[in-house]
């Protein structure tokens, strides 16, 4: 049991609250090269993700890592979330997980 380093659910707007901390988010991939991925957050903001992405990416990508700045993440864990992920639902979850029900998460 260890809850010392949770990764907070964030969307684009919430990311800036957690600079320097561990976060998780889902982006819609816009473009990628060897060391980075550019994507659109679930609330339509641009997010830059650094690190080493997997060779093939689906439309939606979850990244877990440290928030570098208010619009970039240094990712440690990359998970393809497929092509039919509901971004709106995820966006609402991010808000709930940082709002009224924060204590269930962090």
């Amino acid at each position: 049991m260890d809850t010392s380093s949770p990764s907070v659910f964030v969307n684009g707007a919430l990311l800036r609250r957690f600079v320097g901390q561990k976060v998780r988010t889902v982006i819609q991939v816009m473009g990628s090269d060897m060391g980075s991925v550019v994507g659109k957050s679930t609330d339509d903001l641009q997010i830059f993700v650094r690190g080493s992405p997997p060779p093939s990416l689906t439309t939606y990508l979850e990244v877990i890592g440290i928030a570098d700045s208010e619009n970039s993440i240094r990712a440690e864990v990359w998970t393809n979330f497929g092509d039919s992920f509901d971004a709106l639902n995820y966006n609402e979850l991010c808000k709930l997980a940082n709002g009224e029900f924060k204590h269930l998460f962090i």
Binding site: E62, S84, F85, N89, L93, L104
Partner: peptide
């Protein structure tokens, strides 16, 4: 397999709570 289940799970946690 369907990653909407991830979102769903946490929503369900909130719902149960």
């Amino acid at each position: 397999m369907d990653f909407n289940e991830v979102t769903f799970h946490y929503i369900e946690c909130i719902h149960f709570y």
